[in-house]
Amino acid sequence: MKRIKRDYKVRNFHQAKWDEPIIFELSNKGERGILVPKVEKEIADAIGDGVSKIPESMKRETLPNLPEINQKGY
């Protein structure tokens, strides 16, 4: 093949276009993106659930409304 002449442009500049859903729209109840380690049985036996000691006024009543997604996509 012949070498391409670079004294002209083949195509014009074009801006990146995106058509992506918002992350909350990808949520599927029950999906997990990452698993958090559970404490060892010995600790759970010695301490209990850990959260019942939180003062009443400081307990979170409903879980945060974050999306539930996996790492792979949809």
Binding site: G33, K38, G48, L66, E68, I69
Partner: peptide, 18 residues
């Protein structure tokens, strides 16, 4: 996004217990 509601709860619980 990765942690989600359950991940954040489990993280908090783990830290409280430890």
């Amino acid at each position: 996004s990765l942690m989600g509601p359950k991940g954040m709860y489990e993280l908090g619980q783990n830290i409280m217990q430890k």
